[in-house]
Design a protein around this nucleic acid. Structure first.
Lengths: 401, 401
DNA sequence: GGAGATTCTTCAGTTGCTAAACAAAGAAAG
DNA sequence: CTTTCTTTGTTTAGCAACTGAAGAATCTCC
């Protein structure tokens, strides 16, 4: 057998390239033809890769082209929200094979397990071809997972479960299924109940030591701005997050009526996402006050995005998540303008800003992609992390010799 | 011989730990005792590592402690500024063995080469124990290097030359010689003629695809702020960079006189760093207007630092560079307060803010550290970067089979 | 229908690591 | 002091992954 990390690297290249030959893999990896030959044979034997045809000849034997066998394995992605549960079954390519989305309030473990089973059975996929289950939720709902939702789902479904937050998942999903290259550096700007970002640096997802990397919600955009619940002033979330936008709309009587906003004061637990979607809808239909509100928000988000792109030296920015699914058309041009202008003057490389084609179900698809990635491109090779270097060392030593 | 990346990893662990035994290395790396034994023997034979004594027994044979042989190799670091050239010779531990700093205006290649020779000869170090030369300058002076300063120095000194920018170098220097752990995630906030940051994520320096990672100078702190030369509004550099602070001071007649600021209008090429240093000096001596000016700047820098720490999920922030060398005492408490408050309310992990003990010569020391790192902990193992995945692929292919 | 080019496979040889036995050095107990 | 146990470090054989070079297969061009 071949070294697992090489196998994973080759598989990932096949995925990223879509279609590639053995010679192409030799060039991309730096390995020799012999090694590639062996590794590819193994992948074909496992059914993960298939030969799909021939390239045009360049003067000699035609190259045999390889592709991921998209339907060799599957993964389940579950996205928990403040109001919904969305569950998708994807194939190896990250394409959605089945999808169920239903309202969900309160403790979701039972419902989640039943939804997972339903989604798998709905297309009659063999269960041991399902690699695992990705479970994704906003950081604010982290409580359930930590307790037992993960293990409970693991028991109920028999699938290995991995957890992550929505923004990181969206980024990984974009990296896996989207058109971004294998070594690209980009962020997925995520708007759900809050606003966040998942980051992929040089083809590797960057989470940070405490798993909070990409927390853009508390980017400071005004040192004298309104106080945020986090204690600081002028945070993006307080100025321009979905909750802030909805709050601003609710203080406008006419706008509240036009958008049909769900009441505010009586029930504090109103789903912000629904009101934000309603607001976006009438803005796109031409309501000037809603449009002004969203464009104001977009200006702040654009400034924060510019900072993020600067600091992380990003190449691509993808807008995704339920928020941008409904309001992307309003935010996109504002962000594009901001980033184009800033980088043109400094003669820096341009930053591509894109709207995710599947923004609404991005977190669920991303959750499945995390499973694909962790099962097929696993454990970043290398040495064990020496968290506590001298932890095992006796404290004192006597110089000698 | 053993695999080079393992050798490098072990060497880096010895460096990071200061003093460590073979068993400690086994625990830290996950390798077996046999492998460590072989690798360490090789390192001792090369003279890079020495046995320094014994630890206390934990019930059996005492551990033989290993240390870097600090004086086995040396590296030269050169820092070019708008007004000075600073050159240091460091040993393997990053400790300064010799240092020369002199004024320098205009094209520096001849002077640089002579200074390098002088610094090596001043302590009579054997030239083939000098691993190489790191050359560091602010991004604004990048012109000279790109042309021929690097190759010219290489020819004149006979040493391999590596280039980098000042902020990144400072971060690497802090990582190499400072007390930060081997896998830490931190940024070196650098204040020189401008303000920037070098970032180390999980023990690896992160430069970004275009080498501009950590560019904090154009962090947006006020969407309606003054227009920056970059085209955007409210950039940190325009609001609170050294040049902005000096400009604000110059518009205050009394302050200009008290600080003895070098004239402004006549010669546009006034060294900002000198004026900033003068301002800091009288602020520390109690001048209230200078202090107010710097504290205002510190508030902006603190907000930008908070954003940086949020987005990158940093553990440590080190203030370094000539700017913080003179004004660190004023900025440090403001940054500490800002970061403590923000992270206390969100129950996130605290962020340590430190002032570099050698802030003034940090870039030069960092330049030398880059050489040490690139020679001793080289080439991040792994596959060749597949920049152009399908570059070698014929464009069309015919499906078959 | 060769000749040359290109792709892919096969196989011996090298390398870097592990596992396990062994040797050495000290602590604890009698 | 001797015995026994623990811990540290070294040596050895063996294995798995990769390289390099030779060869087989397939296609184009003349």
């Amino acid at each position: 057998m071949t070294h697992s990390s090489t196998r994973a690297a080759v598989l990932d290249l096949v995925r990223a390239a879509g279609t590639i030959s053995r010679v192409g893999l030799v060039n991309a990896t730096g390995l020799t033809g012999g090694t590639i030959s062996t590794v590819v044979r193994g992948l074909i034997d496992e059914g993960l890769v298939v030969e799909t045809g021939h390239a045009e000849s360049t003067g000699g034997k035609r190259r045999v082209m390889l592709q991921l066998n998209h339907f060799a394995r599957y993964a389940v992605g579950v996205h928990l929200d403040d109001a919904r549960i969305t569950c998708v079954l994807t194939n190896l390519g990250g394409a959605v094979v089945a999808r169920i989305s239903r309202a969900c309030a309160g403790e979701p473990s039972g419902l989640a397990a039943r939804t997972v089973d339903a989604v798998i059975d709905s297309v009659g996929v063999d269960r041991d071809r399902v690699l695992g289950l990705g479970l994704v939720s906003p950081r604010s709902l982290r409580g359930w997972e930590g307790h037992d939702l993960g293990p409970a789902l693991e028991r109920a479904t028999g699938l290995p479960v991995v957890l992550d937050n929505d923004a990181a998942a969206a980024a990984i999903g974009e990296h896996w299924a989207g058109g971004v290259g294998a070594t690209s550096t980009f962020a997925a700007l995520y708007m759900g109940t809050g606003i966040g970002a998942g980051t992929v640096l040089g083809g590797t997802t960057y989470r940070g030591p405490s798993g909070n990397a990409g927390e853009i919600g508390h980017t400071c955009l005004d040192v004298d701005g309104p106080r945020c619940w986090c204690g600081a002033r002028g945070c993006l979330e307080a100025l321009a997050g979905p909750a802030a936008v909805v709050a601003q709309a609710r203080s406008d009587r006419a706008l509240t009526r036009a958008a049909g906003l769900l009441g505010g004061r009586t029930r504090p637990r109103t789903p912000v996402s629904a009101d934000f979607a309603a607001l976006s809808r009438i803005a796109r239909q031409g309501n000037p006050r809603a449009l002004a509100l969203l464009e104001r928000s977009a200006r702040y988000v654009a400034a924060a995005a510019r900072t993020l792109a600067n600091v992380m030296d990003l190449e691509v920015l993808v807008l995704t998540g339920p928020g941008f699914a409904v309001a992307g058309a309003i935010y996109l041009p504002v962000l594009r303008a901001e980033l184009d202008a800033a980088f043109f003057a400094r003669a820096a490389h341009p930053i591509a800003v894109r709207l995710s084609p599947s923004a609404a179900s991005a977190p669920a698809i991303g959750a499945a992609a995390i499973v694909l990635q962790s099962e097929l491109v696993p454990r970043h090779q290398g040495l064990r992390l020496p968290d506590d270097l001298a932890a095992g060392e006796p404290p004192v030593f006597q110089p000698s010799a």
